[in-house]
Amino acid sequence: MALIFITGSTEGLGRAAAQALIGQGHRVVLHARSAQRASALVDLSPRAAGVVVGDLGSATETRSVAAQVNALGRMDAVIHNAGIYAVKDRSATPEGHAAILAVNTLAPYMLTALVERPQRLIYLSSGMHRGGTGPLHDIDWTERRWDATRAYSESKLYVAALALAVARHWPEVLSHAVDPGWVPTRMGGRGAPDDLEEGHRTQTWLATCNDPAAMVSGGYWYHRERQAPATEASDPVFQDALMTRLAALTGMTLF
C-alpha cells in the first residue's frame, strides 16, 4: 500500500480523497492549517499515517510542513490539494492578495522542492486556469489593480505549468495536473454544478493506479480523461520563465 501526503485534507476534496485512500488501505498523511483545524480530522487521524500542521500561506510554516512530512518517511505520492479562492474579510488587502499566491502557487512549489522526491506528484489546478494569462513580472499583483477572479485563474495556470515542468525536468517522477471540476465544497459553494465524488477520484487514481494512461507523465486531467491545458501551461519557455520567477520569490531553485 502507498504512503500518500495530501495538503488541505480537513475538508472538501482533500478530505474526500483522504477518506477514499484510507478506505482502500493506503497510508495517508493528513494536513491541517492549524491545530484548531486539525480537530476536524479526529475521525480520520486514528487510521492515518500521521497529521502535519502548518499554514501554507506562510513560508516559514510551509517549511515546517515539509520537515514534518520528511520525518514520516519518503512519500510514494503527494497530492497538492490545498487552495483558496478568496480570504475572508481580507480579500481586498495586500495580505489577501499575497495569500492566494502563497497557498495556490508558492506552497506547492516550495513543498515540491523541500519534500523528499516521491514517485508521483499530483497538483490540483482548475478549468479557470485558461483565463489566467498574465505578466509574470507582476505575479504578486504589486502593479495591477487587484482582481480576485483573475488572480485565482493565474494561480491555477501557474500550478498546472509547475506540474508539467516537473514532468519535463524529472522524468523519473509521474507528475500530473488535475481539474477537479466546479464542485460543491466550501470554496466552490453549494450551488456548484459538478459532482463532488468525481471531483476527488482522478487525483486518488493518479496517486495509486498502474493504468497505462496514468503512467505517462505530464497529463492535465478532468474526471480521469486527459485533456489539453492552456497553451502556456505546456510551453517550456513559459514554464522556465515561471520557475525563474518562483525561485526569485521563494529563494529556492527547483531545477
Rank of each mutant, 00 (worst) to 15 (best):
L3H: 13
L3W: 04
E11M: 05
R15T: 05
A17Y: 08
A20W: 12
A20N: 13
L30M: 08
H31E: 15
R33H: 04
S34G: 09
S39N: 10
A40V: 11
V42Q: 10
S45L: 03
A49L: 03
G50I: 08
V52P: 13
V52S: 09
G57M: 05
G57L: 00
T60D: 06
E61S: 01
A67F: 09
Q68K: 03
G73P: 10
M75Q: 13
H80M: 14
A82V: 04
S91V: 06
H97V: 09
A98D: 12
L101M: 14
A102L: 01
L106A: 07
A107E: 11
A113E: 03
R117C: 09
R120T: 13
L124T: 02
S125K: 08
S126T: 02
H129T: 02
G134A: 11
L136W: 00
I139Q: 08
D140V: 02
R150P: 04
A151N: 14
A151E: 15
Y158H: 13
Y158P: 09
A163T: 15
L164E: 05
W170I: 00
W170V: 03
D179G: 04
M187H: 05
R190A: 09
G191D: 13
G191C: 01
L196E: 15
E198S: 05
T202G: 01
Q203F: 02
T204D: 00
D211S: 08
A213D: 15
M215N: 14
Y220L: 08
W221Q: 02
R224P: 03
T231V: 04
D235I: 00
P236Y: 00
A248C: 04
T250L: 00
T253W: 07
